[in-house]
Measured scan of single mutants.
Amino acid sequence: LQLFIKTLTGKTSTVEMEPSDTIENLKAKIQDKEGIPPDQQRLIFAGKQLEDGRTLSDYNIQKESTLHLVL
């Protein structure tokens, strides 16, 4: 599924993920695209901070969801 990652600067990146992927996997993919180390990334979806060990489906993240990346 395609996700949009929006940064505080207003920049939006697109990443392709599976519902079974963990937040950790997602942060690794963001690191590949943006060069931001996972330990500096905080991802927010629906007002919640996402935890590394959980999966996208745990948070009911659907295709074309927008996640907010806070550093």
Rank of each mutant, 00 (worst) to 15 (best):
L1D: 03
Q2K: 15
F4L: 08
F4G: 02
T7N: 08
T7P: 05
T7I: 12
L8V: 12
T9M: 11
T9F: 13
G10M: 04
G10Q: 03
G10V: 02
K11Y: 12
K11S: 09
K11G: 10
E16G: 07
E16Y: 15
M17R: 00
E18I: 10
E18C: 09
P19H: 07
D21K: 03
D21A: 11
I23G: 01
I23L: 05
I23P: 01
E24A: 15
E24F: 14
E24N: 09
E24Y: 14
E24I: 10
E24R: 13
N25G: 09
N25R: 13
L26Y: 00
L26R: 00
K27F: 02
A28C: 06
A28P: 00
K29E: 04
K29L: 10
I30Y: 03
I30L: 09
Q31Y: 15
E34P: 01
E34H: 14
E34R: 06
E34W: 15
G35V: 02
G35E: 03
I36V: 08
I36W: 14
I36E: 02
I36Y: 14
P38F: 13
D39M: 09
D39W: 13
D39C: 10
Q40C: 08
Q40V: 11
Q41L: 08
Q41F: 15
Q41C: 05
R42E: 08
R42P: 00
L43D: 01
L43Y: 07
I44W: 15
I44L: 11
I44S: 09
A46M: 14
A46T: 05
G47C: 05
G47L: 03
K48I: 14
K48Q: 14
K48P: 00
K48T: 13
Q49M: 13
Q49L: 15
L50R: 00
E51V: 06
E51F: 06
E51W: 05
R54A: 08
R54V: 06
T55K: 12
D58Y: 15
D58M: 05
N60M: 08
I61K: 01
K63R: 12
K63Q: 14
K63V: 07
E64H: 15
S65Y: 06
T66E: 08
L67D: 00
H68Y: 15
L69N: 00
L69I: 06
V70R: 08
